[in-house]
Structure formats: structure tokens, C-alpha cells
């Protein structure tokens, strides 16, 4: 129990560090941040506009006071308002986040369902036909960037074969079937990288587990092959896979931005990309913090799961 509390404590400390770094980025860039945010292509921005922006971002106040206001705003859930339309950042995120989460969840489920059995099977039949084909496929999938896969999927399935919609979004309540159809392609695009990573990791981990002494012990006990596999090989192989899954979520979350963009999925990436282009600083910070927080949370969950699976961690 103590271990769990300690691990949660570490996550909170990391969240604080992340927030601090995001805050500092604005002040670490050389020059006046307001001037920087307004300048495009080397032209000097209008001094009046700069002054106004400084006012709105609160840059005139002492640094420490700004930092305090930033942190206290975070704890209250106040992420400020958009520079463009004065819309509260939190409301925008609250509207969009569930859609992004749905996409990630669908993609992860898809990957786990495909990659864990495939990886285990490939390891057990190492060097066989399935292993070779699946390993080759995984290498290929890893190499194709997610936006390339997405674009090609649209080109082939939507433009040429016309069997899938090119993208978009319909709320689940309005039309469940259409919602799921629209979810399929982006979820597939997200699953491609993750399933390749998971497949490789599962395969390597099962292979490693197979060569362990305790598997030999289990066989020497006279357990059936099935029981050795489930209770001793796969059970022990899962823990490192979980860790990798957690760490890989960072890449996955980044990939989600691209996938949402390609398929017009109105998750967090639409306001994020619009905000980056428009240099809408509060909006970018809000979304980056949200997704980073999500990343930390996922890793926390993975670590707790890991501890549940491996008693040695709890003792450490």
C-alpha cells in the first residue's frame, strides 16, 4: 500500500515538474515572448499589439507572481482563455477530450487483441512461417509513418474503392453505426504502430521467459504444456510488455494528433493545430498539459498494474 502511495506521489511531483517546464518555456525563449508570438516572417510586430498581448498574458507582473497564478489556476482547473476568441480553454478541452480518448482506447484495444496472441504464437514457433511473416509485417508497419498510412487508407478505401467514408465525425447518440464506421479507419491507423511494437515486445518477452530456469522447473514438475505456457511463461512475460506499452503511449498520443488531422476527427488535435498556427499560446499550453497529464496517468496505471503482476516491485 505504501508503495502505491509513493508511486502516486512521484506522479504528482512529475506533473508539477511538467507544468513548471511548460511555464518556463515561455520565459526561456530569447527576447520578448509577446513580440515573438506576434512576429511572422521577420516583420516587426505592432508595438501596441505587443503591449496588449503582454497585458493579456500577464507578462508585466513579476515572474514569481505569474508562476504562482499559473499553478493556482491549474489546481482550480482554470487554464485561461483563448487569445483568438476568448473561449475558455478548459471548456474546449472538456468537449474534445472524450473523442480523443475514445480513439486511443479503440486503437489500444485493437492492438492488444491482435498483438499479444500473435506475439506469443510467433515466439512459441520461432523461426516458423508465421513468425517470419508477422515479424516482417511488424517491421514494415513500424516503418510507415502514421500519417502515410492514414492518407493511403483514405486514398484506397475512400477515394478509389469508395467503401469507407474519407473521415469526419458523428456523435454516437445520433447514429451509432455511422459513428463506428467513422471510428474504424483512424483506430486502425493508431493501432498499426502500437500493434507492431506490442507484437515485437511480446515475442521477445515470451522468448526470454521461455529460457528461464523457473520454466524448466515448471516442466520438471510435470505440468501440462498449456499450464506452463499460461501460468509461467505468459504470466511472467506480460510485465515487461506493460512497461513498454506505457512508455510507448507518448508516441501514440503524438500520433493521435496526426491521425485526427488526417481523418478530420474532431478531438483535441483540431484546436491544438489551429492554436499552434495562430500562436494561441494559452490554448496550446492547456492542451499540451492535458495530454501530458494523460500520459503520466497512463504510466501510473501501467506501473500499478505491473506491481499487481509482479510481487518483487512492491517490496522494492
Amino acid at each position: 500500500m505504501l508503495w502505491v502511495l509513493r508511486r502516486i506521489g512521484i506522479s504528482i511531483a512529475l506533473a508539477w515538474l511538467v507544468a513548471t517546464i511548460v511555464f518556463m518555456t515561455l520565459h526561456m525563449v530569447p527576447g520578448d515572448p509577446a513580440e515573438l508570438l506576434l512576429s511572422t516572417g521577420g516583420t516587426m510586430p505592432d508595438p501596441a499589439a505587443v503591449a496588449e498581448l503582454r497585458e493579456r498574458l500577464g507578462l508585466e507582473r513579476p515572474l514569481l507572481e505569474q508562476y504562482g497564478a499559473f499553478l493556482s489556476g491549474l489546481t482550480r482547473g482554470d487554464l485561461g482563455v483563448s487569445l483568438i476568441d476568448e473561449y475558455p480553454v478548459l471548456e474546449e478541452i472538456a468537449l474534445r477530450l472524450p473523442r480523443t480518448l475514445e480513439l486511443i482506447l479503440a486503437g489500444t484495444l485493437l492492438s492488444v487483441v491482435v498483438a499479444l496472441p500473435a506475439g506469443t504464437y510467433a515466439a512459441l514457433h520461432r523461426g516458423g512461417a508465421f513468425d517470419r511473416i508477422a515479424s516482417g509485417l511488424a517491421a514494415l508497419l513500424l516503418a510507415v509513418p502514421v500519417f502515410v498510412v492514414g492518407t493511403l487508407l483514405i486514398l484506397v478505401l475512400a477515394q478509389m474503392l469508395r467503401i469507407m467514408p474519407a473521415g469526419g465525425y458523428v456523435a454516437l447518440a445520433d447514429d451509432p453505426l455511422r459513428h463506428l464506421t467513422l471510428l474504424a479507419m483512424p483506430a486502425l491507423a493508431i493501432a498499426k504502430g502500437l500493434s507492431a511494437v506490442l507484437f515485437r515486445m511480446t515475442r521477445a518477452s515470451v522468448l526470454d521467459s521461455l529460457s528461464r530456469d523457473y520454466v524448466r522447473t515448471a516442466r520438471a514438475k510435470g505440468l501440462t504444456a498449456r499450464r506452463v505456457l499460461v501460468h509461467h511463461v505468459v504470466r511472467n512475460a506480460l510485465t515487461p510488455v506493460l512497461t513498454v506499452l506505457g512508455l510507448h503511449m507518448g508516441t501514440l498520443l503524438g500520433g493521435t494528433v496526426l491521425v485526427e488531422y488526417v481523418f478530420n476527427w474532431p478531438g483535441l488535435s483540431t484546436p491544438l493545430l489551429r492554436a499552434v498556427e495562430a500562436r494561441d499560446y494559452p490554448m496550446v499550453v492547456g492542451i499540451v498539459l492535458t495530454i501530458s497529464g494523460l500520459f503520466l496517468l497512463i504510466n501510473l496505471i501501467m506501473d500499478l498494474l505491473y506491481a499487481a503482476l509482479d510481487p518483487r516491485i512492491r517490496a522494492a
Binding site: 512529475l14 515538474l17 511538467v18 511548460v22 518555456t25 515561455l26 525563449v29 515572448p33 515573438l36 508570438l37 512576429s39 511572422t40 503511449m249 507518448g250 508516441t251 501514440l252 498520443l253 503524438g254 500520433g255 494528433v257 496526426l258 491544438l272 493545430l273 492554436a275 499552434v276 500562436r279 494561441d280 499560446y281 496550446v284 499550453v285 492542451i287 499540451v288 495530454i291 501530458s292 500520459f295 503520466l296
Partner: peptide, 17 residues
């Protein structure tokens, strides 16, 4: 490592163009 890489990049791009 606490930041998803693309997001950290986007944050900096917002500031520096």
C-alpha cells in the same frame, strides 16, 4: 520523457514559429 514528443515540439513551434 514526461512529454509526448510531438506535443513538446508543437509547444516550441508555437513560441518560435
Amino acid at each position: 520523457l514526461c512529454f509526448p514528443p510531438v506535443l513538446l515540439a508543437l509547444l516550441v513551434v508555437t513560441l518560435m514559429g
